[in-house]
C-alpha cells in the first residue's frame, strides 16, 4: 500500500547556516500512529512544519496522499490537520464559531452536524458558546484539536501535544488520541515524553540533530534494542561478589543483598541458567528473583549517545 506521507531526502538549512534537517527519508502508512522522538532542536517541528506548509524545504520532496506539497498544495493540505505546540488560539472568540471558521478556511462548506459531533467527541459541546479565554488549559488544547479536525482530515499532526501539561491532562490527551486512532485518522506525534510514544505509537522515529536515526515498530524496537535486567535478591548480604559471578558481569547493589545481571533478550543464550547454577555453587541463597525491561527512554538515550560517539570519532 502506498504511504499516505512520503518524505524523500528532506533538507532544511536556515539563512544563518544552521542545518535543521539533513536529508530525512520517511514513509508513513495510513491509519498508523507515528511518534517522532528527539531532544529539543532535533528537527521534529521543522519536519512537520515543512509537511504542513509552515516552513519551506531547501531540498528534497514530500508527498501527502500522493500530492506534492508544493505543486499540489491545495490537495495535500486538505488532508492535513495540525495542532501546533504553542497555544495559538484567538481567546476572544467563541468555541463553536471558531471551529466552523477553521472548517471554512480549508474550503469546506457548512456541516453543523459534523462540527457538533467533533465538539461532543471532545467533550466541548456544553462549552460551545463560551469564549475560549474562559476555558481551562485542557479544554483549550481540545479546541485546537477540534479546529484541526474540523475539515475532516485524514492525517493529524500533534506537535508536542502534552508539553508542559500536568499528568491528568496528559492522560486525557492520550484518551483523545486513542479515540482518533480508532476512527482511522493517521496521527503523527512529536514528543520528548518517551512514555507517551510507548503508550500511543505503532511506530517510533528517533530524530536527532536533523537526522532520522531510525524508524521502527514500537514493539520490535523494544525487542531488538531492549535489554533486560535480572535482579537476584539474597537472603543475607555479602561483602563481595564471588569471582565466578564477577566474570559473568554481575554487579552488587549498595545494600549488599541484590545482584544485577543484564542480558540481551534477542541473544541466542541469555546465560541465566548458568548464572543461577553459579549462584547456587557459590553457596548463596536466593530469596527473590525479578526482571525489568529497559524502557524506550534507555533505547533513545543509547541511540543519541551512539550518534555523539560516531561524531566524535569522525571528528578525530
Amino acid at each position: 500500500m502506498a504511504p499516505i506521507i512520503s518524505v524523500k531526502n528532506l533538507q532544511k538549512t536556515y539563512d544563518n547556516g544552521f542545518q535543521a534537517l539533513k536529508g530525512v527519508d520517511l514513509d508513513i502508512q495510513e491509519g498508523e500512529v507515528l511518534a517522532l522522538l528527539g531532544p529539543n532542536g532535533a528537527g521534529k517541528t521543522t519536519l512537520i512544519s515543512i509537511i504542513c506548509g509552515l516552513a519551506r524545504a531547501t531540498g528534497g520532496s514530500v508527498t501527502v496522499g500522493g500530492y506534492d506539497i508544493s505543486k499540489d498544495f491545495r490537495e495535500a493540505r486538505k488532508l492535513i490537520g495540525l495542532v501546533p505546540q504553542e497555544m495559538s488560539i484567538e481567546i476572544f472568540e467563541k468555541v463553536e464559531p471558531n471551529v466552523k471558521h477553521s472548517r471554512r478556511l480549508f474550503g469546506k462548506g457548512k456541516n453543523d452536524a459534523y462540527v457538533e459531533q467533533i465538539l461532543r467527541d471532545l467533550t466541548l459541546w456544553d462549552k460551545k458558546d463560551n469564549r475560549i479565554r474562559e476555558l481551562s488549559g485542557g479544554m483549550k488544547r481540545r479546541v485546537m484539536i477540534a479546529k484541526a479536525l474540523s475539515h475532516e482530515p485524514r492525517i493529524l499532526f500533534l506537535d508536542e501535544p502534552t508539553a508542559g501539561v500536568d499528568v491528568e491532562l496528559r492522560k486525557e490527551m492520550w484518551a483523545v488520541m486513542s479515540e482518533l486512532k480508532k476512527s482511522g485518522v493517521t496521527i503523527i506525534l512529536t514528543t520528548h515524553y518517551i512514555e507517551e510514544a510507548e503508550a500511543m505509537a505503532d511506530r517510533v522515529g528517533v530524530i536527532s540533530k536533523g537526522e532520522l536515526l531510525l524508524v521502527e515498530e514500537t514493539n520490535t524496537l523494544m525487542k531488538s534494542f531492549g535489554k533486560k535486567m535480572l535482579e537476584i535478591e539474597l537472603d543475607k548480604p555479602v561483602d563481595a561478589i564471588p569471582p565466578a559471578l564477577l566474570d559473568r558481569g554481575v554487579t552488587l547493589g549498595e545494600d549488599g543483598r541484590t545482584l544485577y545481571y543484564s542480558y540481551d533478550t534477542a541473544a541466542e543464550k541469555t546465560g541465566i541458567t548458568d548464572l543461577l547454577a553459579e549462584v547456587r555453587k557459590a553457596g548463596l541463597t536466593m530469596s527473590d528473583l525479578s526482571t525489568r525491561q529497559s524502557s524506550l527512554e534507555d533505547i533513545f538515550v543509547d541511540l543519541v549517545a551512539k550518534q555523539k560517539e560516531e561524531e566524535t570519532e569522525d571528528a578525530a
Partner: peptide, 17 residues
C-alpha cells in the same frame, strides 16, 4: 495580530493561495 498570537499558522497551513 494573528502573527502576534500565533494563529497565522492556520491560514498558512490551509489550502489557501
Amino acid at each position: 495580530f494573528p502573527k502576534f498570537v500565533g494563529t497565522i499558522y492556520e491560514v498558512l497551513s490551509a489550502p489557501v493561495s
